[in-house]
Amino acid sequence: MLAYIVRRLISIPFLLLGVASVSFLLSQMTKGDPLAALVPERMMSNPEIVEAVKAEWGLDKPLPVRYVRYLGNLIQGDLGTSFSTRRPVATDIAERLPATLELVIAAMIIGTALGLCLGLLSARFRGSAFDSLARIFALIGSSLPIFWSGLILLYLLSVRIALVPGTGRLPPRVQPPPTHTGLYTIDALIAGDISLFWQALAHLALPAFVLGWAVTGIITRLVRSSLIEGLGQDYARTARAKGAPERVVLIGHALPNAMIPLLTILGFTFAYLITGAVLTEAIFSWPGIGSYAVRAAASLDYPAIGGVTIVGSVAFLLANLLTDIAYAWANPRIKVH
């Protein structure tokens, strides 16, 4: 197993190089002229200005030179400069990453908690009306276009009954807490500002639920099927024979065994979360890297979209690596090729 983990670790740099190369090639194959994004239209006729801009952004060098330069910059953590914000992409991303993290972590917590509860109850009352309802709820969550469910829930819960506040991370004109972690809820607690904490939490609740709902389906399905499998095993029969009530068999015996497969679908749900986060942030005006990517894609800001793609891929690769390691660790019988 150790050999397997080492092999996976060795493959990571090569995959990253591949990801970087594809990103670079994509940015070079662009049909739109990046100059158009840099030079105001009326200055396009002035060759001196055009040449100066080309030199400044390295657009005048041949392809291989730009590729080597690109990789060199990347290793130093330089993702280039955004055409639209005129700031380093790495700075932009670092500034917006906590917002995305807060959203994704909250969504993961909601999705896992909801999925576990629904899975547990479905397995306990298998075949009942609740079981069918839970299955439908989970199925709809993973089939809904997230940008639509977000919109409809925003209308129902915010516009119609004002249960939750509108878009954004905080009400307008409210100062965010002093930065420690960048997560507004945590920072507000650190600052001891309880009312700010509730405000931040209220703004977080709906987008996190919308995003969490999307992964609830996967988790519910998995928990339900592995619990039901566990309830048919010998250890469950033994526990019942010794007089344990069904509740204890389920929670004390079957549930711990169901945690292992749950652990191993982390990477799978992470892909859903990234996709969902991009769209959720767009709907809820959430100032994270997802909405940054959407804006960058719409304004043909190649360095920015390339930077987000690379950061997202690194996170994705790490999540998959952790999943594989967890899988190998939890199930040593699996032979990995």
């Binding site: 995959l15 594809v22 049909k31 894609a297 891929s313």
Partner: peptide
């Protein structure tokens, strides 16, 4: 392997934007 290292939506966005 390289293609599936990209989160799907980001790859689609990058390609579509380019």
């Amino acid at each position: 392997d390289v293609t599936v290292s990209f989160p799907p939506i980001l790859l689609a966005m990058a390609v579509a934007a380019m």
